[in-house]
Simulated scan of single mutants.
Amino acid sequence: MKLEHIGMVGYGEVGKIFAAGLKRSVTGVSAWDLKFDAAVASAAVRDAELAHAAQAGVRACPSMQAVCASADLVISAVTASNTLAVVQAAAPHIRPGAIFLDLNSASPGTKQQAAQLIDAAGAHYVEAGVMTSIPPYGIRVPMLLGGAQAGALADKLRGFGMDAKAVATTIGVASAIKMSRSVMIKGLEALVIESYTTARGYGVEEHVLPTLAETFPSIDWEKTGAYFFSRVAQHGKRRAEEMREAANTVREAGFEPWMAMAIAGKHDWVAQQSSDGVFDGLPKDASWQQYADRLLSKSRL
């Protein structure tokens, strides 16, 4: 498998990390993002994104067609709700024989629809289940791959320094693993935020957290709480989108996704608080108590 030119679709946090991490292993990396489009983004946002790409040695493309034109490997790193839309836009332009690697958190059914479009264009669709938060790991984040070319691609990506493992030749298995896990992990985040903030409101957190430590002694509940609050405050909107796809996954399995939809609602709510400025001014290393106090202050207004 020859992969010399990589095209990133989505130049947000994940796209920037992957572009920077893979650039040294290939001939060139190009990127396309709606923020590059003057008709969509403000001049300030567009200029900042183009400047970042130029400084990183990434070629900013003017369109989806342009980013697909020379790419042996197209990597999609957008929000969950845009998973299928990106594939629909890329399919008419992707090169025959190219690989389309979908990093997005979407249900097996969504990934199967996407695969049909890419395969019909003569390219090869590979789904990825990204199994934990990317920033601490960079391109070494553990990923499970699925699809006819998953094994060959996993071998190639490991040569680039990535932690990629093929789990199936069919589409949907990797997504099912990822989304089933997301119900638990994103659910735990939502539960921690609701439980801790409630305990803080009643002044009983010094009694509640030790009982959690007794039941689950391997978890640092103070540190975990701070991390969960900060990540949801920063990425709640994206996490809510992922949980709606997790709900689709549950539904596709034949269950009613009551929990997944409730988790999506909690993440959406925290994201709205962040958008409203509730957490403005908190330091990067803020404690969970500082986040909870801001939420309590807002609720008591």
Score class of each variant (00 low, 15 high):
Leu50Tyr: 02
Ser25Val: 11
Ala38Pro: 06
Asp33His: 09
Val29Gly: 00
Ser30Gln: 01
Arg46Pro: 01
Ala56Asn: 11
Lys35Pro: 15
Gly57Ile: 06
Val45Arg: 02
Gly21Cys: 04
Gln55Val: 15
Glu49Ala: 12
Ala44Ile: 05
Ala56Asp: 02
Ser30Leu: 07
Ala54Met: 14
His52Val: 13
Arg59Val: 08
Glu49Met: 13
Ala54Ile: 09
His52Tyr: 04
Val40Gly: 05
Phe36Ser: 01
Leu34Pro: 09
Arg59Thr: 04
Arg59Pro: 14
Asp47Gly: 07
Ala43Val: 06
Phe36Arg: 02
Leu50Gly: 14
Val40Ala: 14
Glu49Gly: 03
Ala20Met: 10
Ser42Asp: 06
Gly57Asp: 10
Ala31Phe: 01
Thr27Tyr: 15
Ala44Glu: 15
Ala51Val: 10
Leu34Ser: 13
His52Thr: 03
Arg24Leu: 07
Gly28Gln: 07
Asp33Leu: 09
Ala54Glu: 06
Glu49Ile: 14
Ser42Tyr: 08
Val40Phe: 10
Thr27Arg: 08
Gln55Pro: 05
Glu49Pro: 09
Glu49Leu: 12
Ala31Ser: 14
Ala38Ile: 11
Ala31His: 02
Leu50Glu: 10
Ala44Leu: 15
Leu34Gly: 15
Ala51Cys: 09
Val45Tyr: 13
Val58Trp: 00
Ala43His: 15
Arg24Gly: 14
Val26Phe: 01
